[in-house]
Structures are given as C-alpha cells and as structure tokens.
Design a protein around this nucleic acid. Structure first.
Lengths: 212, 212
DNA sequence: CCACAAATATGAGTAACATTCATATCAGCG
DNA sequence: CGCTGATATGAATGTTACTCATATTTGTGG
C-alpha cells in the first residue's frame, strides 16, 4: 500500500494529564469499534467524535489527521501483539522451534477474534506498513523478533538466510490468515490449518538446528 | 474468456457511441496514472477529470462514484490478465503442469512492471475483492481458472482438494509478489524467486498427475 | 486559598472534496 | 433538415476533514 507520505506523523501533541490520556484511549477504542462496523472507508471524523463522546476539536488536539488516528490504533494493536507474544515465549519453554512459530501464529489468530478493529486493520495494510520502523515493513519487524527468539532459545543457526525465510513466511502467513477471516468471521478452520501446514513445511526446509 | 459479460457492473450508464467509449477509456487511463503517482488516497475527482481532459460531469455520466472508477480499472486489469494468460496457455503446450502455474505467476509479475496502476491496485485489495464474482474473491476466481486448465490440459485429478490447494497457493503467491514490488520497483528478484519455490513445493504435495 | 500559566476542551467556521443537475451540444436516422 | 436520444459541461450543492478563537480545567508556587 504505497501511500506517498503526504501528512501524518504520530501525535500532534502528547497528552500529559490523566484525563487527556484516557480521552485519547477512548478515541482509539471508538475508532476500533467503528472500523469493524463501517469499515475504514465508512469511518468519518464526526462519527468517531460522537462514539468517543468527545468534541471534534478534541480529536485534532492530539491527532494531525484522520489517518493518524487509525495508524495510532494499529500501532497499539501491534504493540499489544508483541507483548502478548513475549509473554507466551517467556512462560512456556518450547521443545521445538516450531512451537515458537506456532505460538506466534496462534496469538495472531486469537487477536483477530478478540481485539476490536484487529480483523479490519490487521498489521496496517490499510493505512501504513511502516509503523514500527522507518525502513522495514511491519511484517519484517515481526520476522526479526522471531529470528531473534529462534536463535536465542533454540540455537538455530543465524544466517541471513534464516531471516529472509522468516520474512517470506510471515508475509505468506499473514495473507492466508486474512483470507481465513474474510471467509469466516471466526476464521475458516480449514484455511487456518492449511496455512500452518504450509508455513511449517516451508520453514522446515530453511531452519537448521544444530545436533543437540 | 470474453470480456463482454461483466461491463454492466460498476457503470451507471454504458457508453454506446464511439466517442464516449474512448472517453471512458481515457478516464481509466488517467486513473491508472494518478493512482501510481499519488496513491489511492491521494486521488481526487478533479485531478482525474483534469488528467483525462474531461469535465467532472462527464465522469459522473458513467460512474456512480469515485470508488467505481477504481473498481472498473481493476476489472479491466484483471480481464487483461486473464486474456493474456489464456493466450500463453493456448500458444505453448507445456510439458509439465508446473509450467502452466509458472506462466500464471510470470504474467502477473510482468503486468506489475508494465501496466499502469497495476502495482498499486493489484487485484483489488484496495477497493473490492469481489469484482469478478459475487460469491468468491478475485483470487478464488483465478484459482478456479487454474484448476480448470490443470485438469483439462494435464489430466490432473480434479478433486475439491486441488481447488482448495490452488486457492491457498494463489493467495500466498499474491501476497509475496506484492512484497517483492514493495521492496523494489522492478520486483525484488530474491523474493520473486523464493515465492516461486514456495508455491511449487507446496503444490507438488497436492497436485496428483495420473501416470501417462 | 488565591492567582496564574499551561494544558485541555469546545463547536461554529472554513476549505477541500465528491456529487448533482439544468442546460447546451452532438450523433445518428428518417 | 428536423427530430430524438446520447453525451458533454461546470456552476451549484452537500458532505466531510480540519482550523481556530475562546472557554474551561488542572497543577503549582506564593
């Protein structure tokens, strides 16, 4: 989604008092609800202000434009994902590297089902794929974290090859999971299963674990 | 593979005289240029009218709204793709079923490079994924055509399993090729190569050819 | 408890944009 | 040539994103 950088930074002004912090959260919550209800195209600023029970001017106190609101929401979702994933990885220590990848996929699926706005915005393909990092796509950042964990926890040989394979895998998995949720509100089970199979078999050919 | 059937879709009124047919084409051409230049979000109706050297009213003679213009362009691109693909399949008779799939991928890549607007709109993920068929995604339609050819020309066993695998494969390939063109204007060669490998290896496990 | 400044909240007002419609022009046909 | 439907036009209208002058609240030092 090549959106020529016309406007949209992150926040116009950072909320410092408690009330305004809560207010910005309410705006993001309203944004999430509405985006699921009417889609990104159907979202209007007045609708958002009404749902958040906020004057339209308050929105523009903190956000430079409409796009930035959706970006901020996407960013919040991505950070929540990374946190949850880190928690999962910290909790259970996996027997095989695949279990780590499997957890990443499962968490992504879970958030599609439970987090408002997630099924519509995913990881930013609607608004901007460069939220976490200037240089790389959001998916590339996810891939990098995965690579880091695979190397650290499972002693996978770290080579450029591994990171490349993971970027490919993440991109494919992302697309297939989106397909599953386009087909079925809860995620088409057959598609989800097949996605995992495809990714697992692909990675098996590119991830080398040293003999333990 | 005739193109006449679909024309009634997004059009408010079908152009009957020669001049208006050419005019609608000019609008679509202008739309393609602009979408590549300023992105879908940056596209405005006045910009489009100026570029097409047409009064704004003329646009609305045929298109109900802005979205319909982009839809019509995407549809034109998809039909061009299907026609080119049919031509390829008709010309060379392939030794192996993979050559057919390979041709489909290559043509998709070629159009990304040569057809204005294609690298931005792809097969409609920006506007609508249900242009060719009410029920199914655009990619599902492509998958069906592929299945039809594989069964007809190569005697691949037709089973629901095959079509399902192709839908998965098309979706994944689509996402990976988009990634390649996000990374590099001409399509990142390494990503494109890896995409083909992934798809080929995946399909090898799901496409059965009877002994000839 | 009282200034006083900084932060925040407000919504009528402005600008940009999508879309309409009354009217003018053109193509084809008898 | 005159008539009819198709096409072209752009000022006018409605909708939406966004601004700004002003009011209110919060925190802080005296």
């Amino acid at each position: 989604m090549s959106t020529s950088a016309v406007t949209s930074g992150p926040l116009r002004r950072v909320p410092v008092q408690g009330r305004s912090v809560a207010r910005v959260q309410r705006m993001l919550d309203a944004c999430a609800e509405l985006v699921d209800e009417v889609g990104y195209e159907g979202l209007t600023t007045t609708l958002l202000a009404e749902r958040a029970e906020v004057a339209i001017g308050s929105v523009y106190q903190f956000f430079p434009d409409k796009r930035a609101i959706v970006q901020a929401l996407t960013l919040r979702n991505m950070e929540a994902y990374l946190e949850r994933l880190a928690a999962r990885w910290a909790d259970a220590s996996f027997d095989h590297w695949w279990d780590g990848v499997d957890a990443a996929i499962d968490e992504y699926i879970a958030m599609h089902r439970t987090v408002p706005g997630f099924r519509t915005l995913h990881f930013g393909d609607v608004v901007d794929v460069h939220l976490l990092d200037e240089e790389r796509d959001n998916n590339a950042v996810i891939a990098e974290r995965l690579a880091h964990v695979l190397v650290g926890q499972f002693g996978v040989t770290d080579e450029p090859r591994l990171r490349f394979a993971l970027e490919i895998a993440v991109e494919a998995a992302d697309a297939l999971i989106k397909l599953a949720f386009r087909r079925d509100v809860d995620g088409d089970a057959a598609v989800l299963h097949e996605s995992k199979t495809l990714i697992r078999e692909y990675l098996h050919r590119h991830v080398d674990t040293p003999p333990s």
